[in-house]
């Protein structure tokens, strides 16, 4: 029993992390048709900011690292938009994707060459993140519980935002028809900004959890989780918010299942198996689980 609950929580926390990231990708994509390949670098920037704070300000409590990390993630997302993505806002999707690819390389290399961080640097997170609690005789890691809970709260808050506020409604409307939204007098820049703030916030939350798990930063730390998030978003149907969440959770479940099922000898192939499984799903449903039947040319270029 202990084991089952443990594994379920494993799946929920990993899946939750992917869902947070995939949701950020999906929001930016649905609002402005941009595939943000630099999403992983938001995590990296959050991690390095926490590292810098730890080194230079030596805060009395590791607590402070968390809000600063999240704030840095939001700032990074907004800066990317302002500096790199705005000039290509109305360009074909491929142009935006390659721009984001360039941004990703710039940030990685900034940390490699300017900061000189070629090997991982340790960063502490609050102790209680690594602790365990016992509920009904079952040992549960606080981090995992928190991860599942925060994901759930973030999703509910996002849902409320999208249904109940003007900016949320505008974002949903802009996903289909940006020009008509502007005809309502709503500023395009504000809608896009909101999308990036939300995607940065979600990435910041994920970054905190990633940091808590890894305990160290390096310039490439954002890549792997965001790659998974991309796959999750495609699995769910790219641009669909529901799809991003379901895809993220499904990917978490698949990873944990393969972890359990695969014999040690081929455990290293786990990701390959997960991706192949996703590929199989996409053969049956090319538009993803929740995607619309893909309109050729739709936000493609």
């Amino acid at each position: 029993m202990d084991y089952v609950i443990q594994q379920v929580l494993n799946a929920a926390s990993i899946g939750g992390e992917y869902a947070l990231l995939a949701l950020g990708l999906a929001i930016v994509f649905s609002v402005m048709g941009l595939v943000n390949f630099a999403h992983g670098e938001i995590i990296t920037i959050a991690g390095f900011t926490m590292y810098a704070l730890f080194i230079f300000a030596s805060p009395t409590s590791a607590w402070w690292l968390l809000p600063i990390g999240i704030a840095a993630a939001i700032a990074a997302a907004v800066t990317f938009e302002r500096v790199a993505f705005r000039p290509v806002r109305n360009a074909p999707a491929t142009t935006g994707l390659l721009t984001a690819f360039g941004v990703s390389i710039v940030v990685k290399n900034f940390f490699v060459s300017v900061v000189g961080a070629t090997r991982p640097r340790a960063v502490p997170t609050p102790d209680w993140l690594g602790s365990q609690i016992v509920i009904g005789g079952v040992h549960i890691q606080t981090l995992q519980l928190l991860e599942a809970a925060v994901t759930a709260i973030a999703l509910i808050a996002l849902l409320a935002l999208l249904r109940g506020t003007n900016i949320g409604l505008a974002m949903r409307a802009a996903a289909k028809d940006f020009n008509t939204v502007r005809l309502m007098g709503i500023r395009a820049n504000q809608v896009v900004l909101a999308a990036f703030v939300i995607s940065g916030l979600l990435a910041g939350l994920a970054a905190v959890f990633i940091m808590a798990r890894r305990g160290a930063v390096d310039p490439f730390m954002g890549f792997s989780p965001v790659l998974k998030a991309f796959v999750a978003a495609v699995l769910g149907g790219f641009g669909s918010l529901t799809g991003a969440v379901v895809g993220g959770l499904a990917l978490g479940v698949a990873e944990v299942l393969f972890q359990i099922v695969l014999p040690d000898k081929i455990a290293g192939y786990r990701d390959a198996f997960v991706f192949l499984l996703v590929g199989a799903v996409l053969i049956l449903r090319p538009q993803g689980l929740f995607g619309r039947k893909y309109q050729f040319g739709d936000k493609e270029g």
Binding site: F29, V35, A93, T94, L97, L227, F230, V231, A233, V234, F238, F275, V278, G279, L282, P286, Q287, G288, Y294, F296, D298, K299, E300, G301
Partner: peptide
């Protein structure tokens, strides 16, 4: 097509 294709190539 489109984005899904690009990400599939990456996968």
């Amino acid at each position: 097509t489109g984005i899904a294709y690009s990400i599939a190539t990456l996968a």
